[in-house]
Simulated assay, not measured.
Amino acid sequence: MKSFALIAALLFAAAPATLPAAPAKKPAAVPARDWLKVINRTPAGAFVIGNPAAKVKLVEYLSLTCSHCAHFAAEGYPALEANYIRPGLVSLEVRHAVRDGFDMAASILARCGAPGAYLGAVSTAFAKQDKWLGRAQAFSAANQDKLEKMNENEVFPAIAAGVGLDKLFAARGLTPARQKVCLTSVAEVKTLTASADEAWQKRQIPGTPAFYINGTHVAGSPEWAVLEPALKAALR
């Protein structure tokens, strides 16, 4: 039987002189900022989504009763948000070119929550546009006389309830009390009226949606297939 001293000698002889150094840990990657979560309201009442220092500044004039705007939102917003706004390449400023009372009521409610909820509220209004706007003609025909006799604090709450906008935005967490505050806000109506005047009278946009990149109108059909190449060109 080998002695304990000999066994110990063999064990130590077989062991490496030094233990291998532990592999160096890679520094934790700093997550990129999600600029899609940065939403601010301008003094004029527009909403700017994304990096305020982005090289490309996109302005969209929209109307929530515009079917072409709803089509663009479904077709273009996902790629615009994921590929251009989120990484900070493009900022999007949304300006409301209000066209009618239903548009006004929907716009007020879309803007009623916290700024961070704004883009989701607009997208929801467009996604459900066929339902609430589909009720507008019948509601207007049945209530025209009543609406004309209402004061300004009653008109937009009545429209919102009459076409189902109240329920649509309640599902997004906008309480009835908060909706009433917004829908009866004279200041907000004035802001949206001024925004519409800037769009239709001063800027004289050709229709909605209308897009401007760094101040220059994007000509052609207002579709993602036309807008994206213009964005890429501006980013070069």
Rank of each mutant, 00 (worst) to 15 (best):
L89H: 15
G101L: 11
D103G: 09
S107C: 12
D100G: 07
L109M: 05
A114K: 15
I108C: 05
A106M: 05
A117V: 00
L89W: 14
L92T: 01
D103W: 08
S91Q: 01
D100N: 15
I85E: 02
C112E: 03
A105Y: 05
G113W: 06
A106Q: 00
G101D: 14
P115A: 03
R111T: 10
L92Q: 04
A114D: 14
G88M: 12
P87T: 08
L89M: 14
D103I: 01
L89F: 15
V98E: 07
A106F: 00
R86E: 11
S107M: 12
G116N: 11
L89T: 13
H96K: 03
S107R: 04
G113I: 05
L89V: 12
G88K: 15
G101W: 08
R99H: 11
A117Q: 13
E93Q: 15
F102R: 00
S91H: 04
I85G: 02
D103L: 07
A105S: 13
D103V: 02
S91K: 00
A114Y: 10
P115T: 02
V94L: 11
L92F: 04
G101M: 11
E93K: 13
A110V: 09
R99S: 12
E93W: 03
P87E: 10
G101T: 13
C112A: 08
P87H: 10
L92G: 03
A110S: 15
P115I: 02
R99P: 06
G116V: 12
V98N: 06
G101N: 14
A97K: 09
A105N: 03
R99E: 13
R86Y: 06
D100R: 02
V94A: 08
A114N: 13
P115L: 04
H96D: 11
G113H: 12
A110R: 01
V90L: 11
V94H: 06
M104Y: 01
C112K: 05
R111P: 04
P115S: 00
P87S: 07
I85A: 03
S107F: 08
R95V: 14
R86Q: 12
G113R: 14
F102L: 02
I85W: 03
A97L: 07
D100M: 05
A110M: 12
C112Q: 04
I108D: 02
A117H: 10
V90S: 09
P87F: 08
A105D: 03
